[in-house]
Design a protein around this nucleic acid. Sequence first.
DNA 1: GATGAATGAGGGTTCATTCAT
DNA 2: TATGAATGAACCCTCATTCAT
Lengths: 217, 217, 217, 217
Amino acid sequence: MAKPRPKTVKRRAAGAKRKRTSQGEPRREAILAAALEEFSARGFATARLDDVARRAGVAKGTIYLYFRDKETLFQELVRAELSPVVKALEAAPMTDLPMRVVAERLIELFVREIFATRRKDVIRLILTEGPRFPAIAEFYYREVVAHVVTVIRRLAQRAIERGELTNDSLVRFPQLLGAPGIVAIIWSGLFDRWAKLDAEAFMRAYLDLIFGKGRAP
Amino acid sequence: MAKPRPKTVKRRAAGAKRKRTSQGEPRREAILAAALEEFSARGFATARLDDVARRAGVAKGTIYLYFRDKETLFQELVRAELSPVVKALEAAPMTDLPMRVVAERLIELFVREIFATRRKDVIRLILTEGPRFPAIAEFYYREVVAHVVTVIRRLAQRAIERGELTNDSLVRFPQLLGAPGIVAIIWSGLFDRWAKLDAEAFMRAYLDLIFGKGRAP
Amino acid sequence: MAKPRPKTVKRRAAGAKRKRTSQGEPRREAILAAALEEFSARGFATARLDDVARRAGVAKGTIYLYFRDKETLFQELVRAELSPVVKALEAAPMTDLPMRVVAERLIELFVREIFATRRKDVIRLILTEGPRFPAIAEFYYREVVAHVVTVIRRLAQRAIERGELTNDSLVRFPQLLGAPGIVAIIWSGLFDRWAKLDAEAFMRAYLDLIFGKGRAP
Amino acid sequence: MAKPRPKTVKRRAAGAKRKRTSQGEPRREAILAAALEEFSARGFATARLDDVARRAGVAKGTIYLYFRDKETLFQELVRAELSPVVKALEAAPMTDLPMRVVAERLIELFVREIFATRRKDVIRLILTEGPRFPAIAEFYYREVVAHVVTVIRRLAQRAIERGELTNDSLVRFPQLLGAPGIVAIIWSGLFDRWAKLDAEAFMRAYLDLIFGKGRAP
DNA sequence: GATGAATGAGGGTTCATTCAT
DNA sequence: TATGAATGAACCCTCATTCAT
């Protein structure tokens, strides 16, 4: 009974390892970063907390000091990475610029803040794991997608009023504007090996397609 | 009796041969159908072969008579479901109809043959599991995506020549034409709970957007 | 992903081990017997299913073919071992013999069917683990203790009517008759190392004490 | 300041010394009290030191300043709670009162000092955990049980000499006198939920049974 | 071919114990 | 002294895979 650890055995023979101990370093952040790597690379179900711990430079048990369980780690990972986006969306100023200009800025924003960062992987994780994590899908829908849809719809409405757009497709389906962004993310994870896709050029070409080439700026 | 096959003999390496019982190998089909259900519902890693077997009405061991292992089952599932599509693509006739008309037929085809069928789930599986199954991603890329891209590029080229399109976006990025289809599939798996998306209307609105409303038939 | 077992590695290099395969042999029984041993020796919480499996000559996973989990194994163990006792109790014939005679037969029965068998350990397990397993305590109370109490009360009642007993202590507290049996079981598990207790003599001395020495047959 | 004790020095082996803060080492007491609660409620193996610490209002590490490990805590807990009993036993005066009277006083003592106090739980812990803690079983046997047995044997001897008892059962098995006390403790932990047992009445009825009702006082 | 009982590696989670502060 | 974050061994349970029948 109670064989918790041989009492006579010295642990960690030498004071070697123990990499990161700069007190200021937030273990939680390290774990989240490592989890994102592992979940992205192997998927939620297949990722091993052992690997997350190793990558974060902590012991396996340490993860449980910060997260109730694997699923919670995943959910908090998504929330943590997305919350700046959520905040930015809520603070999004309504401009009076032409829609095409706004759209181009959105592309820049998307590339800089999402596509070129770890957030791209978070989005991909949501797309791939979301069906098994309704809570995450809902969070993403309510906090991100719904906002974006609303904003785009309003933009499209005004663009029509101003004559920048000649039909109401984007009002009825604002998702259309974001479609290339989603596809770019998916493509990059699936097919870049065989055919790399220049996401920014891809999305700009899309604007050319729907607004007409060079009509803007 | 019993015909106890010498114990040291390697069983047929499985996967290879096949094709005997005239009317379509009902067991194999049942397993594939069951596997699609389970993989779609739970993802590859989380799906249990036990459930696949139960759903298919066979014993667990039977699966291994037809497929080397879980991964092979998955790969053959994708191939089996996609091969008609592949064949259709290869036989796709090049028409001289206006691009918008062709695009509308593609939408109909997509809705009827993909979106309204189990193939939608196969596509979704490829999108979500592909990153962990390069073989599948590659197969899908080479046999489906590349063909579609080529076809669309050719269509776009001609459309430009005929003045139906005024810029080369679709030539440079034929993926743009398929983007809404992809997004529709993803949306349906993620967000339909909160906001159902009418895939066909969605894609038609897209054509309105890029070709101009009602300009075509 | 899916690293279920290296495909090329041959398992169980030699067809050695595989002890018990005499088809007729009930795995379930072997597991229950092994579980009783392990639970008795180490207590429920500390017993390792690994050891149960090893002792039963089966693989760890096999246990789960027969029992949902560790706790279920424990509960079914208790039920399985006690059910003959329960049946015997229900079929217990009411005799007209003097109470002392009946009590002596009960002692013989107790020694032969409980104390000299694995059931002694089951009773001990109930006494020690019961507080943490209300379901087991209740089962034992309802199916065994309550019956025994009822039977003894009836016996005591009649003994009073016949003048074999001169007070109603055993009617009010039939448990008194069984107390030495319980104490014998506890003692044997705790103190036999330092002072062995002859359970049968112990209980017979008890009858001498309450009925008077040698007054009965 | 900080007085950072040279890192290589072995901390006081813990357990030994102790005894300084005048008014009874409140921390140590708090830990022992908390430990008794937790061990009683969940058993040794299942109790968590985390909970003990929380209940005692100290940090987890603090426990280790007072006790080498979980097992030592348990053993010292038993010793601490029992030592007053041990002392009382050693000082037990030999009276010349009739045995029944003495027995009744023992019952009162048992009820007041054991059954109505936390010591009941300590006894129960010994009974349930003893088999896995030979050191505790032995301590309890030597310091408590053996003494009690000796005392009762002497009492019984004299009772026979005086004609208060007509047979030697209690001389040969003094444990018989304590049996109902043990059973009362066990019953209260197991079956009180379904059938509460009045321990004092139970033990008094026992005296009625073996000495004859009302013959005493 | 077909079955499904059996296997056992793998991984999530817990918790006694340590130690830097 | 006291703290509590960190550690990592241990253990329950799952499930892909095998194989005797």
